[in-house]
């Protein structure tokens, strides 16, 4: 019987979605807020990448909330999985895997930090780069050549990176602005690495935080998967 109600709900939902196809307009969005954001992005944040300007400037609070969600997920994941001994090791990694891991690790670090630090100029930013950083640190675990990142260190990094993000936001408040207002925007020319004021710093905090959270979550899961599961 609940099945029937579910199917009924699904049918209604699908009908709703497909009837929207006929009523929504495509390709010509109203851009009521979007156009203003595009017009002010450079003056307001100094970032050439308008998406980054939205993420860290116009909607910085969303980004803070999103970092908090990752933190909450990592904390809850740790709470669920607890501290457990690493399970039985898999078969030892072969020479190719070991060499490949060692070769890739520095490359991934460089690419990750490059993407984090150029987020205000080119596509990319703290999230994308942070994921690559997390993958770099997680690679040895996947290849079976290392124990993965140190948990205590990850905690310090994620705690401090999140705090730095909020402190940069509060710094604006203390200097007479509003919470999360971009600072020092007029220093540096457009399209240069050291431009857009505090945005690259914020992105660095975001990148480190995302990297640490994801690496922590993955390490927890790898440890849990080590046993019989």
């Amino acid at each position: 019987m609940p099945r029937f109600a579910t199917v009924l709900f699904l049918a209604g939902f699908a009908f709703l979605l497909f009837s929207l196809t006929l009523t929504l307009g495509f390709g010509e969005p109203p851009m009521r807020a979007g156009q203003g954001v595009l017009d002010q992005a450079v003056a307001g944040t100094g970032a050439a990448n308008a998406v980054s300007a939205v993420l860290l400037g116009f909607r910085g609070l969303d980004t803070l909330g999103e970092l908090s969600i990752l933190f909450a997920a990592a904390t809850a994941g740790g709470l669920v999985l607890g501290h457990r001994r690493p399970g039985g090791d898999g078969p030892p990694a072969g020479a190719i895997l070991q060499a490949g891991t060692r070769l890739l690790f520095p490359l991934m670090l460089v690419v990750g930090f490059y993407i984090v630090l150029h987020g205000h100029l080119t596509p990319g930013g703290g999230f994308q780069g942070g994921v690559i950083l997390a993958a770099a640190f997680f690679l040895p675990v996947l290849a079976g050549t290392g124990a993965g990142p140190d948990h205590a260190l990850l905690r310090v990094v994620e705690g401090l990176a999140g705090t730095v993000f909020i402190l940069i936001g509060l710094a604006a408040l203390w200097t007479g602005g509003v919470f999360l207002e971009p600072l020092l925007v007029d220093r540096g020319a457009l399209h240069e690495l050291f431009s857009a004021g505090t945005l690259p710093l914020l992105y660095l905090a975001v990148g480190l935080k995302v990297g640490a959270e994801l690496a922590g979550l993955l390490a927890h899961m790898a440890r849990a998967g080590g046993g019989e599961a």
């Binding site: 909607r59 609070l61 969303d62 809850a76 709470l79 669920v80």
Partner: peptide, 30 residues
């Protein structure tokens, strides 16, 4: 944040934060 926010997507973000935190708390007994 939910009480204060006047932005639809920001409300969604805070709602998700409350949700994820409460998933963790729901499993707290272990």
């Amino acid at each position: 944040g939910l009480a204060l926010s006047g932005d639809l997507f920001n409300i969604y973000v805070f709602y998700e934060l409350a949700a994820v935190a409460s998933y963790g708390l729901a499993a707290e007994r272990g």
